[in-house]
Write a protein that binds this DNA or RNA. Structure first.
Lengths: 130, 130
DNA sequence: CAGAATCCCTTTTGATACTG
DNA sequence: CAGTATCAAAAGGGATTCTG
């Protein structure tokens, strides 16, 4: 049984640490990046509003992550000269396309996380059995 | 006391640290999990072959990650009583469905990583300009 | 071959305090 | 409001050694 999830030329060689998939994963596979991307995708949002929406993230980490996203061309940062200053984060077209690619993941999670939890319980009960 | 659990939604509330998307990301958003999933998806594979295919991963981390994947019900581990023993890892149906959901990401990476690199160069050159 | 165990270092993350 | 600076804690990850 051989599951082909993409044409041969679209499954880059993990042999090569420089394959695009690895480069992308090294960038977005952290605790917050994907989550921030999906939240900003809903609508442009300000710093502290974003922080409240994503419960549990510290100022520092939010700031760092947003800076990385901006550097990667996925997010724009717009400062308005109000008093006090307000800053709005939004997705770039590139960010929109990545968020769209990531979106099915949220659906998968909502559908299948229960199965994962059940598998964990089963595994743990068997491990503890002896 | 009447607790209403939100129905499965395409955009779950990141407000709640227990939303399925966050739970899934906390599990798979690390350096190797997604990569291993996509490699095993191609065909069942043995431990050291897997390690060679995914260059750069240590025995310890490969072992740990595979154990987590097995615990989550995403991967099966089958030991054959050969001498020496051979162990084959394959995806479960759940793992196959997750790998299929993740697959478009590899295509996105192949298509757009160049743009991210260009954005980084642009950002860095502007930052260094003053 | 397929790991488990150990040691150790690096990166990530968080808490707290302070600034324009 | 939107951050930065600093310190401390924790997790992640790697190199090496050993075993059934």
């Amino acid at each position: 049984m051989n599951l082909v999830i993409a044409p041969a030329d679209l499954t880059p060689d993990p042999f090569n640490p420089r394959c695009p998939t690895r480069l992308l994963l090294d960038r977005i596979a952290d605790k917050w990046t994907v989550l921030l991307l999906t939240v900003i995708a809903r609508e442009p949002v300000r710093f502290n509003a974003l922080r409240r929406e994503v419960g549990g993230i510290s100022q520092k980490v939010l700031s760092q992550t947003l800076k990385s996203l901006e550097r990667d061309g996925l997010v724009t940062r717009t400062a308005y000269p109000t008093v006090p200053v307000t800053v709005e984060y939004a997705l770039t077209p590139l960010g929109i396309s990545l968020a769209a690619t990531l979106a099915p993941l949220a659906l998968w999670a909502a559908t299948h996380m229960g199965e994962i939890g059940a598998a964990q319980d089963h595994f743990d009960s068997r491990a503890g059995a002896h």
